[in-house]
Design a protein around this nucleic acid. Structure first.
Length: 167
DNA sequence: ACTTCTTCTCATG
DNA sequence: CATGAGAAGAAGT
């Protein structure tokens, strides 16, 4: 199988160092890594063992930067979803959450037509490879408490705070 | 009234 | 088969 060429860029955000990975055209992964440059690469290689990863500036670089500085939403066509149909449905639903707002897991479940599959939704959101850009951090529990977060609940709070303080 | 516990639910590994 | 980034209702304090 031919190795896919993927490009990554690191960004500094108020809530941590972000690593964004994708093809020249589309973003397929985003995560946090404070542990340093090498650790970031290791993380990416671990997520995509079959890809050849190098640093560089892809087409989405400018938009990603705009997103971080102006806190805007990215068009979903910019993302490359890889996952089960269920996961894709969940992630698309997340993109419809207005910036600065939050939704509950139950609401997301209802939106995709499985009102009772709240738990499954939680798992699917947790598996989201493009954190931050797909606003998984905007999803909270029904009683308004912060649920879990793949990158730590502390970070989840930080992001939410940043979003509300940044018009 | 508040806290804990029990049960329901469903995609995933 | 067991588990999870949940939720609603019951039971106990």
């Amino acid at each position: 199988m031919k190795k896919e060429a993927l490009i990554f860029t690191r960004y500094e955000a108020p809530f941590g160092s972000l690593v964004v990975l994708g093809t020249a055209e589309k973003i397929c992964f985003a995560g946090f890594s404070e542990a340093g440059h090498d650790a970031a690469i290791a993380l990416l290689r671990n997520e995509f063992p079959e890809a050849s990863i190098s640093q560089g500036e892809a087409k989405w670089h400018e938009k990603a930067q705009t997103f971080l500085s102006e806190n805007r939403t990215l068009p979903r066509v910019l993302f490359r979803f890889s996952g089960t149909p269920f996961q894709c449905a969940v992630w698309k639903a997340l993109l419809d959450i207005p910036r600065g707002k939050t939704a509950t897991y139950a609401e997301v479940a209802r939106r995709i037509g499985h009102p009772r599959a709240v738990r499954a939704v939680g798992t699917a959101i947790g598996a989201n490879p493009i954190s931050l850009f797909i606003p998984c951090h905007r999803v909270i529990r029904s009683d308004a408490t912060i649920g879990g977060y793949r990158w730590g609940t502390r970070r989840k709070k930080a992001i939410l705070a940043w979003e509300s303080l940044n018009p």
